Lab assay of single mutants.
Amino acid sequence: MQGVVKVNSALNMRSGPGSNYGVIGTLRNNDKVEIIKEVDGWYEIRFNGKVGYASKSYITIVN
């Protein structure tokens, strides 16, 4: 499943599904990501070869 990031500035990509996990990357508005699965309001995603987590509130699913 594919998604597009929708933010005003930047979205942190984290090592786990929560804001208490470390930041491993930064996503920008309109970045395209691969959604692997949903975990407690977060998406596990793949972006630029990295796998991490981002809040699903800021990612819109596209077909």
Score class of each variant (00 low, 15 high):
T60E: 15
W42N: 02
N48I: 07
R46M: 15
N48D: 12
F47E: 03
Q2A: 12
S19H: 15
G52I: 01
Y43R: 01
Y53A: 01
V39W: 10
K6W: 04
S15I: 15
G25A: 13
Y58E: 14
W42V: 01
G52L: 02
K56H: 07
Y53H: 03
G49E: 13
Y58L: 08
I36W: 05
V33M: 04
K6R: 08
D31V: 06
I35H: 01
V62N: 09
G49D: 15
D31S: 06
Q2V: 14
Y53L: 01
I61G: 05
K32Q: 14
M1G: 13
V51C: 05
K37Y: 09
L27E: 00
N63Y: 03
Y53F: 13
R46A: 15
E44I: 06
V39E: 08
N20M: 12
Y58P: 03
I24F: 02
K37R: 09
S15F: 06
V39F: 08
Y43V: 05
A10L: 11
R14G: 02
A54F: 04
D31T: 07
Q2C: 04
V23L: 07
I59Q: 00
D40K: 08
N12H: 15
M13D: 00
N8I: 13
I61W: 04
V33G: 01
T26F: 11
D31K: 03
V51G: 07
K32L: 14
I36M: 09
K32H: 14
G16C: 03
L27F: 03
G3E: 02
N63C: 06
Y21I: 01
S55C: 06
D31Y: 06
I61L: 12
M13I: 10
I45V: 12
G52C: 03
F47T: 07
N63P: 13
V7E: 04
S15L: 11
S55A: 13
R46Q: 14
D40I: 07
S57Q: 12
E38R: 04
P17Y: 01
L27Q: 01
I59M: 04
N29K: 07
I61C: 04
V5N: 01
E38I: 08
N12S: 14
I61N: 05
S19I: 14
G22H: 13
K50A: 15
I59Y: 01
A10F: 13
G49R: 09
A54V: 15
V33P: 03
V4R: 10
E38A: 07
A54S: 06
V7D: 05
A54K: 00
Q2T: 11
L11V: 12
F47M: 07
L11N: 03
G52Q: 01
N48P: 02
T26N: 08
G49L: 08
Y53K: 00
M1E: 12
G22R: 08
S9I: 10
K32E: 13
S19Y: 12
V51D: 09
M1F: 12
P17E: 01
D40T: 10
M1I: 13
N8F: 09
V7N: 08
D31C: 04
A54E: 01
Y21G: 03
G41S: 10
K32S: 12
Y21V: 02
V39G: 04
N63L: 10
Q2L: 12
G16M: 02
Y43M: 06
Q2P: 09
V5P: 02
K50L: 14
Y53E: 00
N29M: 09
S9T: 14
A54C: 05
W42S: 01
I45N: 00
I24A: 06
R28C: 05
V4F: 05
N30E: 12
M1R: 06
G3I: 03
N12R: 10
N20I: 11
T26Y: 11
R46K: 14
D40Q: 09
D31H: 05
I36Y: 07
Y53W: 13
K32A: 11
K32W: 13
E44S: 06
S57E: 14
F47N: 05
A54L: 09
I24M: 10
K32I: 14
Y43F: 14
V23P: 07
V4K: 07
K56Y: 05
G41Y: 05
K32M: 14
L11Y: 07
I35L: 06
T26C: 06
S9H: 15
N29S: 15
L11R: 06
I35D: 00
N48Y: 10
G41F: 07
K56V: 11
G49I: 05
S15G: 10
N29C: 05
V5M: 03
N63Q: 14
M1A: 13
